[in-house]
């Protein structure tokens, strides 16, 4: 253990994880390597593609460019935190049904951005959906099926 290591606790998907890390580590690498939740993807590692999107107190954050130590005392949600037992989150089900998953690398980030969008805007217009997903790049789908899945999820979840 080098001198700049710090012992911190992170709350991820409601579970408390004690980790000892360098404070220069990004949240993404700690979630994947220390905590072992590999659903969150490393895409560009540059804050440009959105594959690493997680929720921090319910708000979307590119975890590749956020210090893990800065997440202490806050609540992190990753793609693994959306499943209820065996039951997929409606957006997980809908993105599969609509054909919105091709290579799948952007999928966890897309789903996390959708959750954040529907939280602040439960009945989004198509334009609001497109802006809501605009930080998540997809090379395969052309976005149409993902947008359709968000629309369906909003209909299912809207109060």
């Amino acid at each position: 253990m080098t001198s700049d290591q710090q012992a911190i606790t992170l709350s991820v998907n409601g579970v408390t994880y004690p980790v000892t890390i360098s404070p220069a580590r990004n949240l993404l690498s700690v979630i994947r390597s220390e905590i072992g939740l590999t659903g969150t993807k490393e895409g560009c590692d540059d804050c440009e593609c959105g594959a690493c999107m997680v929720l921090l107190d319910g708000q979307p954050v590119n975890s590749c460019s956020f210090l893990a130590a800065q997440a202490e005392g806050r609540s992190v949600t990753t793609i693994e935190g959306l499943v209820q037992g065996e039951q997929l989150h409606p957006m997980q089900r809908n993105i599969l049904d609509e054909g919105g998953v091709q290579c799948g690398f952007c999928t966890p980030g897309m789903i996390m951005s959708t959750c954040a969008l529907l939280e602040r805007c439960p009945r989004p217009t198509d334009d609001e959906i497109q802006i809501g997903l605009s930080g998540n790049l997809c090379r395969c789908t052309g976005y149409a099926t993902i947008i359709a899945a968000v629309r369906r999820t909003a209909e299912e979840l809207a109060p």
């Binding site: 220069a24 460019s65 800065q70």
Partner: peptide, 27 residues
Amino acid sequence: PIAGGTDLVVAARHGKAPLPDSVVAID
């Protein structure tokens, strides 16, 4: 000081400027 880190951490990941030796979160 670091708030959201969208400049400081991203610049470090770009290789533009390494993270400072000492950082205080003000968020």
